[in-house]
């Protein structure tokens, strides 16, 4: 993402692979002993930190979802999380995230391809990537309010369309509904897609296109047989990350709907803030466990795709 300008060709593993200088040089004996001891020692701070501030809370969620309020083992939380309104919340969350991810991924890919093939690439690329960096990180809250000013009941675009005779709120649109959330989510999914897919798009070497052209392939055949298959794993991988990103989003939905839309993060939030019965204090953990499971499945797919991608794009 931030490749320094000075190192164009030599990158990553490929650069280091032909240097197996094991056992050469006067220091190698001492080095290998430190290497053995230090391999784990040097990673201890990181491992401890992750275990404490990520591992402990996660384990507490997992264990808590199988306990009742007094700590006895029970399946009632998990069962409640998998039925009724909470099951519907999961389905709604998945539907929303899938819609936002697919739309965001396709549009982001279009933008990345347009950018990569642009003749005046450098400046444009700088503008688009830095803008993407900002927009992908704006955070849900400011974004929600900016969209209220744009497509809310009194938003500028809403009023402009109404002045042209198209009252979108009469036509069934609402910013505070499923469709509205998709529109807002796509706004932060596209920049994320651009940032993630750009290395893969850049990885398509011009020479491959030229080689295909030399062999008589049309542009279409190039994309059908070379470019497309090469981009596909990276595209699907990024799509999965976009899905998890939308699935985990809480702030946008909360700020837009003040907690009325029934998606899982919002449900967990209101369970935490005590907007529900007291005897369900571990239900939030069961919902959390459900979210972890959904994301874990998606991320396992992602890891598998990553291995396929990295085989090509090194």
């Amino acid at each position: 993402m931030v490749a320094p300008a000075g190192t164009p060709a030599v990158r990553g593993r490929a650069a280091r692979r032909p240097a197996p200088d094991r056992g050469t040089g006067p220091r190698s004996r001492g080095l290998s002993r430190t290497r053995f001891l230090g391999r784990w020692a040097g990673l201890a701070p990181f491992a401890l930190y992750a275990a404490l501030f990520l591992g402990v809370p996660t384990v507490s969620v997992v264990i808590g979802s199988f306990q009742d309020n007094s700590g006895h083992p029970t399946l009632s939380n998990v069962s409640a999380a998998a039925h009724g309104i909470y099951l519907r919340a999961f389905l709604e969350s998945i539907r929303l995230s899938a819609a936002a991810a697919v739309i965001g991924a396709v549009l982001g890919l279009v933008l990345a391809l347009a950018m990569a093939s642009s003749p005046r690439g450098r400046l444009l690329r700088h503008v688009v990537t830095s803008a993407s960096g900002v927009f992908a990180n704006v955070g849900g809250v400011p974004l929600a309010f900016m969209f209220i000013a744009t497509l809310g009941n009194l938003g500028m675009v809403t009023r402009a369309l109404a002045a042209m005779g198209l009252d979108i709120y009469n036509a069934g649109f609402s910013l505070f509904s499923f469709t509205g959330l998709v529109v807002v989510y796509v706004y932060f999914e596209i920049p994320l897609m651009v940032l993630m897919i750009l290395p893969a798009v850049d990885g398509l070497k011009i020479q491959w296109g030229e080689a295909a052209a030399n062999l008589g392939a049309s542009r279409w055949r190039y994309w059908r047989h070379v470019g497309g298959p090469l981009l596909l794993p990276a595209f699907l991988g990024a799509l999965l990350l976009l899905f998890t990103n939308a699935f985990a989003a809480y702030a946008t939905a909360y700020a837009l709907t003040t907690g009325t839309i029934p998606i899982v993060p919002i449900q967990i939030g209101s369970l935490l803030s005590g907007n529900v019965l007291v005897d369900q204090q571990n239900l939030g953990k069961a919902l959390g466990l459900g979210m972890i499971l959904v994301v874990a499945v998606v991320m396992a797919l992602y890891a598998w795709l990553q291995r396929r991608t990295s085989r090509w794009l090194r």
């Binding site: 809370p57 996660t58 969620v61 809480y250 935490l272 939030g284 953990k285 972890i292 994301v295």
Partner: peptide, 16 residues
């Protein structure tokens, strides 16, 4: 990325 912030906060509040 696997453990959403909203889930992590549940764990943090109960574990700590």
């Amino acid at each position: 990325l696997v453990i959403p912030a909203v889930v992590l906060v549940v764990g943090v509040l109960s574990a700590f």
